[in-house]
C-alpha cells in the first residue's frame, strides 16, 4: 500500500476512535474497548473495500455490512459519520432518548445500517441470508460481517458457519475481532472458543489470520477473500482491545463502561497525540 493511502486510512481510523470516545462519553455508558479494536477494519471497509454510496444508502447493488458484535455500535456510528452517512454532530446523541442512535444498531432508524443487531450470533446468520439472496439473484454485491471473539461462544455462530459453507457463500467475508477479552475476563479463561482458525477451517471456510491494525494486512486479506471461490472467508484479526487509548488497551474493565471526565480527557489527549503524529 502506498504511504499516502496508508496515512489517510490511519487518520480516518483515528478520527473514528475519537468519535467512539465522544459518543460513549456523551452517553455515559456503552462499549469502548471492542469499538476501538475494530476501528482500522471499519475504516478500510467503508473507505476502500465496500461498494456503497453515502447519498444512496439503500442502493440495491451495494455491498452489505453487518456488525454482528452489535454492542460496538459506537464504532459503526463513528464510521458512518466519517463516511458521510449520518451527521457528525449526531454522534454525541448516542443512546439518548431523543436520538436514533440506539445502544445497538437499528436498521430501521439509522441510514447505512443494513441489519439490526445486538443479540450475539444473530447478525452472522443474517449476513448469511443476505449472501444467499445475492447468490440466488446473481447479484454481484458482497457481504461483510464483524464478529466478536467472545461472540463465537454462541452456538448460533457455528450454525451460521455450517450454513455459509454448505451453501458455498463465497460472497461472504466474516472478520473475527480477536481482542482476547470479554466482560468477565480473558476469553480463554471464561469459555475458551479457540483455536478459531482450525475450527473455521474444519467448518469448510477459507481462513486468513492478520494483525487487525495493519492496513497492508487488511488490504491483502480482503483481496485474497475476493479470489476465493466456493467457500466463505473468515479473517481472524488479532487486535488490541481499547486500541489507541492508553489505559483502555488490553484492559477488560473497558469492555462496557464510559470514562468519566478526567479519563475522557486522557483518552482524547492520547488520540490527539496520535493525530498529531499522523499530520
Amino acid at each position: 500500500m502506498e504511504q499516502s493511502k496508508k496515512l489517510t486510512l490511519e487518520r480516518i481510523a483515528n478520527n473514528i476512535r475519537i468519535n467512539i470516545i465522544e459518543g460513549v462519553y456523551s452517553a455515559g455508558c456503552g462499549h469502548p474497548g471492542g469499538s476501538l479494536s475494530i476501528a482500522d477494519i471499519m475504516a478500510y471497509l467503508y473507505f476502500e473495500e465496500m461498494n456503497i454510496d453515502p447519498k444512496n444508502p439503500k442502493m440495491e447493488e451495494r455491498d452489505r455490512f453487518v456488525l454482528s458484535k452489535g454492542h460496538t455500535a459506537p464504532a459503526l456510528y463513528a464510521t458512518l459519520a466519517e463516511r458521510g452517512l449520518i451527521p457528525m454532530e449526531d454522534i454525541k446523541t448516542l443512546r439518548k432518548t431523543s436520538s436514533y442512535l440506539q445502544g445497538h444498531p437499528d436498521m430501521k432508524g439509522t441510514p447505512g445500517v443494513d441489519m439490526t443487531t445486538g443479540s450475539l450470533g444473530l447478525g452472522f446468520s443474517a449476513s448469511c441470508g443476505m449472501a444467499l439472496s445475492g447468490k440466488l439473484d446473481n447479484k454481484s454485491y458482497r457481504v461483510y460481517t464483524v464478529l466478536g471473539d467472545g461472540e463465537s461462544e454462541e452456538g448460533q455462530v457455528w450454525e451460521a458457519a455450517m450454513f455459509a459453507a454448505h451453501y458455498k457463500l463465497d460472497n461472504l467475508v466474516a472478520i473475527l475481532d480477536w481482542n482476547g477479552l470479554q466482560i468477565d475476563g480473558p476469553i480463554t479463561e471464561v469459555m475458551n472458543p479457540t483455536p478459531h482458525n482450525e475450527k473455521f477451517r474444519a467448518f469448510g471456510w477459507h481462513v486468513i489470520s492478520i494483525d487487525a491494525h495493519d492496513f497492508d494486512a487488511i488490504e491483502s486479506a480482503l483481496a485474497e477473500a475476493r479470489e476465493v471461490k466456493g467457500k466463505p472467508t473468515v479473517i481472524i484479526a488479532k487486535s488490541t482491545k481499547g486500541k489507541g487509548v492508553s489505559y483502555m488497551e488490553n484492559a477488560c474493565e473497558w469492555h462496557g463502561q464510559a470514562p468519566k471526565e478526567d479519563l475522557y480527557k486522557v483518552a482524547i489527549a492520547d488520540l490527539q497525540k496520535i493525530a498529531e503524529a499522523l499530520n
Binding site: 440495491e60 452489505r64 453487518v66 436498521m107 443494513d114 441489519m115 450470533g121 444473530l122 447478525g123 452472522f124 446468520s125 443474517a126 449476513s127 448469511c128 441470508g129 443476505m130 449472501a131 444467499l132 439472496s133 445475492g134 440466488l136 439473484d137 452456538g155 448460533q156 450454525e159 451460521a160 455450517m162 450454513f163 454448505h166
Partner: peptide, 19 residues
C-alpha cells in the same frame, strides 16, 4: 438443517434484500 435459530436469522437477512 437442525438449526432453527440460524434459520430464523438467515430468513431475516434474506428479507432485508427485498425477498
Amino acid at each position: 438443517g437442525i438449526a432453527e435459530g440460524n434459520m430464523v436469522s438467515v430468513a431475516a437477512g434474506i428479507a432485508t434484500t427485498g425477498k
